[in-house]
Design a protein around this nucleic acid. Structure first.
Length: 637
RNA sequence: GCUCCGAUAGCUCAGUGGUAGAGCGCCUCCUUGGUAAGGAGGAGGUCCCGGGUUCAAGUCCCGGUCGGAGCUCCA
C-alpha cells in the first residue's frame, strides 16, 4: 500500500499503482467528479498520473488557480486542434497558459482575420463537445521525431532535449502535440472560453526568426467568471487614458513634435502640479533637499557613469556643441553625484537626500511607445540618498514610510518584492550582495511588512525593492523602486571623511516614488476612470445658474470659491439639463446649482458627481468650507 | 525595429471605381429654463503624403509618414 498525505494532514492508504483520480475517488465521489488535475509533492499532474510511492497529494478542482492554468493550457490545445482541422497545413509553435488566458502560435502563410477567429471558436466548441480524452504518452526521441516529421517547429524544439529527459506527447482526438502537460481529463472540460485577438509573434520571441501568427484567448470554469473577465476588459477599454485624456482635454501628442513626447494641456498640468506639490511637501518633511540639474550634459559624464557603456541603446544621440558631444540625460544620477562632489563631505553631513523632478530622455523603439505610459521624454520624481553603510537600514525605514504615505493618498494597495543578485552580469562580491539583501530583508521584517523575493531580479549594480500598485480594477502597475548601488560610488570615487578622519565610500540609494509623472498620471487617469478625487480634479466645482436671471449671483459665488483657491467654473450655456449633463460628463466633483430660492437665501443646491438627483441645499459659506476641507485632507472617493 | 490592421469634418465613424455623408462638438438666432442633450439655421474636408493603374480613384496597386494591436511569461 501507498501512504498519501492530504493537504489537511490526514494520511490515506491506497493500493500501489493508484492514480490521482483514484485518490480523489477514495476521498469521495463528489471530489472525484469535481477533480480537474492534481498535485504530487507540489507538482501539478494529470488525474491519470500514477503514484510511484508515498507522496503528498492535492486534488485540484475548479476552485484552484493552478487548475485554471491547466484548463487554459488545454484550451490552447483545443484551439490548435480546431485550427489544424480547418487549416491542415498550419505549423504549430507553442501554446501555453498565461496570466489571463492562453495563446497558441501558428505558422501560416497569411495572418488570421477576426472572421477566422470566429470560425475557429465555433470549431473549438465542436472539439469540446466531442469530449476527446487528453491522452498522455511517453515517447523516445526517435519516436517523437517521427511523430512530428511534418512540424519543423516541433522538430527544432526536440533538438533541445537531452538524453535523459522524458519526452511526452498528448493526443486529443485528431490532434497530437509535443507537450509536458498536464491537461484536464478531456476536451469536454472546456466550456466557457473566448478567442480575443490575433497578432504576430516571433518564433521563440526572437526578432531575427520568422513571425508566427498568435491567437490569444481566455477560458474559465464558470460562465459568470468569463462574463466578468470580458466585462473587465471592456471596463479597462473605457478607462484608456488616451481616450479619457482627449475627452477631458488633459494631454496630447503631436506628430510634428514627435512620438512619445507628451504635451500637457492646462487641465492635465493641474493634475501633475497637484501630484508634484503634494510630493514635494512630503519629501521636504522627510528631510530631502531639492536640486535642479541640466537636461543636456557633456557626454563625458556618461562615460564615467557607465551609461554610455551599459545604456547607450537607450540614449538619445549626441548633439555637437562646438565640437563637443552632449547628450540629453537618460537618468539624473550623474548630476546629483556632481553636486555631492562639489565639496568635501563629512560623515556629519550624511545622510544627504537629493531630490529632483528631473526630466529625462530615453530612446524607446517606436513600436513600444504607448500614450503616457511608455514615452521618450518624461519627468522622474528622482532622488539619491548618500549615506554611510550604517545608515542604510534607517533610510530604508524612512522610505517605507514615504512610500506608504504617498500610495495611500492615491488609494493604491501595493505589494513589495525584493530583487536579488542577477545570475549573469553583476558588480560587487557575493558577500556585498548578501549583506545588502539581508539588510533590506531585515528592515522589512522588523516592520512586519510582507514581501516576496524576486530571485535574480536585481539591477547589475545592486539589489532593489519594487513596489507593485494595484489599481481600481485589479491591474498591477510598476510603482516605487528603491535601489542600492555598489557601482556609481566606485566609478565616481565618492568619498566622505569619517569620524576616524579617514576617507570612506558612501552608499548610494536611488529611489523614485511615482516613477515618471507621465506614467503615473496616465495610471491615475485609468485608476480613477477620469473621475479624480477633488484635490486632483482640474475643475472642482461647477456653478450652474438655473437661468440668466441668476447669472450675477452665480458669478459672485464663482468668485467666492476662487478667492479661497477652489477651481470653480461658471456654466452659462444652454439649459439646466444640458449643464448638468455636461458637468457630469466632464466628471466635475461638485455642481452648485443656483436658482431663485438659492439666490435669495444665499445658499446653493449641491449635487455630487455620480449621485444623481440627490442634492443638498446648504449655506454657501458652509459649502466653501466643506470643499476646502475635502481638498486639504485629499479626500478620496 | 518587425508582422498585421488602420488613416475621410475638431471628435467618433459610415461611404469600396462615377456630385463627399451622419452623430456629437463649433458659430448664429429663437427659447430664460428647477436637475443627464429645448428648437431652428449655419460654417467646416488637399478623403495622411508621393507615385501608378483607369475615360474616371476617398475607393484599386506601389512607396512613405503617422497611429493601433502584438512581439516576456519557454512543448
Amino acid at each position: 500500500m501507498i501512504n498519501v498525505t492530504l493537504p489537511d494532514g490526514t494520511v490515506l492508504e491506497v493500493p500501489p499503482d493508484s492514480s490521482i483520480g483514484d485518490v480523489a475517488a477514495a476521498i469521495g465521489p463528489g471530489l472525484a467528479k469535481a477533480a480537474v488535475a492534481g498535485q504530487i509533492d507540489g507538482e501539478t499532474v494529470d488525474l491519470g498520473t500514477k503514484l510511484s510511492g508515498d507522496a503528498a497529494v492535492r486534488i485540484l478542482t475548479e476552485r484552484d488557480d493552478d487548475a485554471l492554468a491547466v484548463l487554459r493550457h488545454s484550451a490552447a490545445h483545443v484551439l490548435a486542434t480546431a485550427v489544424r482541422e480547418l487549416r491542415p497545413g498550419a505549423g504549430i509553435g507553442f501554446g501555453p497558459a498565461i496570466d489571463d488566458g492562453f495563446y497558441y502560435d501558428f505558422d501560416v502563410p497569411e495572418p488570421f482575420t477576426p472572421a477566422d477567429l470566429e470560425i475557429f471558436e465555433a470549431k473549438m466548441a465542436d472539439v469540446a463537445k466531442a469530449n476527446h480524452p487528453f491522452e498522455r504518452r511517453v515517447v523516445s526521441l526517435e519516436e517523437a521525431r517521427a511523430l512530428f516529421a511534418d512540424d519543423p517547429l516541433k522538430l527544432e524544439r526536440l533538438e533541445e532535449f537531452s538524453e535523459d529527459e522524458v519526452i511526452t506527447v498528448y493526443q486529443d482526438g485528431p490532434f497530437l502535440d509535443l507537450c509536458r502537460g498536464p491537461h484536464v481529463p478531456s476536451t469536454g472540460s472546456l466550456k466557457h472560453f473566448k478567442l480575443l485577438s490575433g497578432a504576430g509573434a516571433y518564433w521563440r520571441g526572437d526578432e531575427k526568426r520568422q513571425m508566427l501568427q498568435r491567437i490569444y484567448g481566455t477560458a474559465f470554469f464558470k460562465k459568470s467568471q468569463l462574463t466578468e473577465h470580458l466585462e473587465r476588459l471592456e471596463e479597462a477599454k473605457k478607462r484608456d487614458h488616451r481616450v479619457l485624456g482627449r475627452e477631458l482635454d488633459l494631454f496630447s501628442t503631436d506628430p510634428r513634435i514627435g512620438p512619445g513626447l507628451i504635451l500637457w494641456h492646462p487641465k492635465g498640468a493641474i493634475i501633475r502640479n497637484e501630484v508634484e506639490r503634494f510630493e514635494q511637501e512630503l519629501i521636504l518633511r522627510h528631510g530631502y533637499d531639492l536640486v535642479y540639474t541640466p537636461h543636456v550634459m557633456n557626454e563625458r559624464i556618461f562615460e564615467i557613469s557607465g551609461h554610455l557603456e551599459n545604456f547607450k541603446d537607450g540614449m538619445f544621440g549626441a548633439l555637437d556643441v562646438e565640437g563637443v558631444a552632449y547628450r540629453p540625460k537618460p537618468m539624473n544620477c550623474p548630476g546629483h553625484i556632481a553636486i555631492y562632489q562639489s565639496q568635501q563631505r563629512s560623515y556629519r553631513d550624511l545622510p544627504i537626500r537629493m531630490a529632483e523632478f528631473g526630466t529625462c530622455y530615453r530612446y524607446e523603439r517606436s513600436g513600444v511607445l504607448h500614450g503616457m505610459l511608455r514615452v521618450r521624454g518624461f519627468t522622474q520624481d528622482d532622488a539619491h540618498i548618500f549615506c554611510t553603510p550604517d545608515q542604510v537600514p534607517g533610510e530604508i525605514e524612512r522610505l517605507l514610510d514615504l512610500v506608504d504615505e504617498i500610495l495611500t493618498a492615491f488609494g493604491y494597495p501595493y505589494a513589495i518584492s525584493l530583487a536579488t543578485k542577477p545570475e549573469e552580469k553583476a558588480l560587487g562580491t557575493d558577500e556585498q550582495w548578501d549583506t545588502a539583501v539581508q539588510t533590506l530583508a531585515d528592515t522589512l521584517e522588523s516592520r512586519g511588512v510582507e514581501f516576496e523575493y524576486d530571485k535574480g531580479g536585481g539591477a547589475f549594480y545592486g539589489p532593489k525593492l519594487d513596489f507593485k500598485l494595484i489599481d481600481a480594477i485589479g491591474r498591477e502597475w510598476q510603482g516605487p523602486t528603491v535601489q542600492l548601488d555598489f557601482n556609481l560610488p566606485d566609478r565616481f570615487d565618492l568619498e566622505y571623511v569619517g569620524e576616524d578622519n579617514e576617507r570612506h565610500r558612501p552608499v548610494m540609494i536611488h529611489r523614485v516614488l511615482v516613477g515618471s509623472m507621465e506614467r503615473f498620471v496616465g495610471g491615475l487617469i485609468e485608476h480613477y476612470a477620469g473621475a479624480f478625487p477633488i484635490w486632483l480634479a482640474p475643475e472642482q466645482v461647477r456653478v450652474l445658474p438655473i437661468s440668466e436671471h441668476f447669472l450675477d449671483s452665480a458669478s459672485d459665488f464663482v468668485d467666492q470659491l476662487k478667492a479661497v483657491g477652489i477651481r470653480a467654473v461658471l456654466a452659462d450655456r444652454e439649459t439646466l439639463s444640458y449643464r448638468i449633463r455636461d458637468a457630469e460628463m466632464h466628471k466635475v466633483p461638485y455642481m452648485a446649482v443656483i436658482g431663485e430660492r438659492e439666490a435669495e437665501a444665499g445658499t446653493v443646491a449641491v449635487r455630487k458627481r455620480g449621485a444623481g438627483k440627490k442634492q443638498e441645499v446648504i449655506d454657501r459659506a458652509e459649502f466653501v468650507q466643506q470643499v476646502q476641507g475635502e481638498i486639504e485632507s485629499r479626500t478620496l472617493d
